[in-house]
């Protein structure tokens, strides 16, 4: 039993820590349609720097998860729309509580992340 516990502890030590944000950015999220409903959707992400200037050359990705285990995440990449706005084609696959993690990567490799909680209705 001790061996089993030790092995599990060793395995747990392997888990990589979440990426540390290295860029200070302001990330906002809206979505279409609003309020969120099951089906095809789009995430509209706006990225600004600390001075409030739009960030136009970032790589933006989004990952949506339901708050419970077992559902496949919805992944999407942002398409630049100009003026710091990015559009992510998306799909809400079930009604209920969701969280969306938006990751913004700047050309110099600096990363910023923001989580948004929302409820999707039928």
């Amino acid at each position: 039993m001790l061996v089993a516990l030790l092995v599990a502890l060793l395995l747990a030590g392997c888990r990589q820590p979440p990426p540390t944000p290295t860029a200070a950015l302001q990330i906002d999220l809206t979505y279409e349609p609003a309020p969120a409903r099951v089906g095809q959707a789009a995430l509209l992400i706006t990225v600004r720097d600390t001075a409030g200037q739009p960030v136009t050359d970032a790589k933006v990705s989004a990952r949506g998860d339901m708050s419970h285990a077992g559902m496949a995440p919805v992944l999407g990449e942002g398409e630049p729309q100009g003026n710091g706005r990015y559009r992510v084609p998306f799909e809400w696959t079930m009604s209920g509580d969701w969280f969306v993690d938006v990751t913004v990567t700047l050309p110099d490799g600096a990363v910023a992340q923001q989580r948004f909680d929302l409820t999707v209705s039928r």
Binding site: V38, M66, S67, H68, M94, S95, G96, D97, F99, D117, T119, R122
Partner: peptide, 12 residues
């Protein structure tokens, strides 16, 4: 019926 999981916001 559509399944929906709610009431979990406080855990997040």
């Amino acid at each position: 019926l559509p399944m929906e999981m709610r009431g979990t916001d406080f855990l997040l």
